[in-house]
């Protein structure tokens, strides 16, 4: 695999892409969150990722290996998000970064994904089916691991399949009743709405795939991908997601 310098460049490019995507989707994420939560997911995620871009602009970033770079991303998110997304996205990224000590390979990326999922579940205590980001993460991580370890697919192809699985997971959150997080206070009224955390998880993975396509070879499977910028209201998105369950 690529040497340390290229990996560093790829990580920085990925962060820029994710931060730009989150900024672009800020009001969409907030719309989803205002339907079943506290209407701050877009603003919180955007504040976190803008802080990451600023933090990595400094000279320190040039000396860092992949693991330390990713760790710094996590720490910056923790300090700047201001909601549960801080510990969940930032804390899990920070703790999983140790898996990348030897650089990013197919093997260490699987370990990173598995540890990230584990830390999200340890912190958030959500099982699959609770209408949370876990519903998007579990299919993504399981698909990525299986594609690499069982099917011997190139990491880029494995990642594209994981993004597809993640998208299906996001759709799966729509008809569920929330059992964790702020949406659980709404109980049955949360049914029919798409989970904001699952959605932002998908946006992040889509941007990681987009970035990976610049650096890696392999077939990209895109059949379950959504339009890049959903502009419908949460209610419309919910209806569409329900109508769209025909594959």
């Amino acid at each position: 695999m690529a040497d340390a310098e290229i990996q560093r460049e790829a990580i920085l490019a990925a962060i820029d892409n994710v931060a730009a995507r989150i900024a672009e989707e800020k009001s969409y994420l907030t719309d989803l969150d205002s339907a079943i939560g506290d209407a701050d997911h877009g603003a919180n995620m955007n504040r976190g990722f803008q802080a990451v871009v600023e933090a990595l602009d400094g000279d320190d970033a040039e000396e860092m290996g992949p693991d330390d770079l990713v760790k710094m991303v996590g720490k910056t998110i923790i300090s700047n998000v201001g909601g549960a997304a801080g510990p969940l996205y930032g804390g899990s990224t920070m703790l999983a970064s140790a898996e990348l000590e030897g650089g990013i390979t197919a093997e260490t990326s699987v370990a990173f994904a598995e540890t990230y999922l584990q830390k999200v579940q340890d912190r958030g205590k959500a099982e699959i089916g609770a209408k949370t980001m876990v519903d998007a993460l579990v299919p993504a991580v399981h698909t990525y691991k299986k594609s690499i370890e069982q099917d011997d697919l190139p990491p880029l192809t494995a990642l594209s399949k994981a993004v597809d699985a993640c998208e299906r997971g996001v759709r799966y959150t729509v008809p569920l009743r929330a059992r964790k997080g702020r949406a659980s206070y709404l109980d049955w009224r949360s049914v029919g709405h798409q989970d904001p955390g699952a959605t932002s998880t998908l946006f992040i993975l889509e941007e990681l795939l987009e970035t990976a396509e610049e650096y890696l070879d392999g077939e990209v499977v895109r059949d379950a991908r959504s339009p890049d910028v959903p502009d419908e209201s949460p209610e419309e998105a919910a209806d569409e997601a329900l109508d769209g369950e025909d594959e």
Binding site: N44, S79, G82
Partner: peptide
């Protein structure tokens, strides 16, 4: 109390 900007939320720092 409050998020990093003083709005509604919580802050690790």
């Amino acid at each position: 109390g409050g998020d990093p900007d003083g709005g509604i939320g919580t802050s690790v720092d």
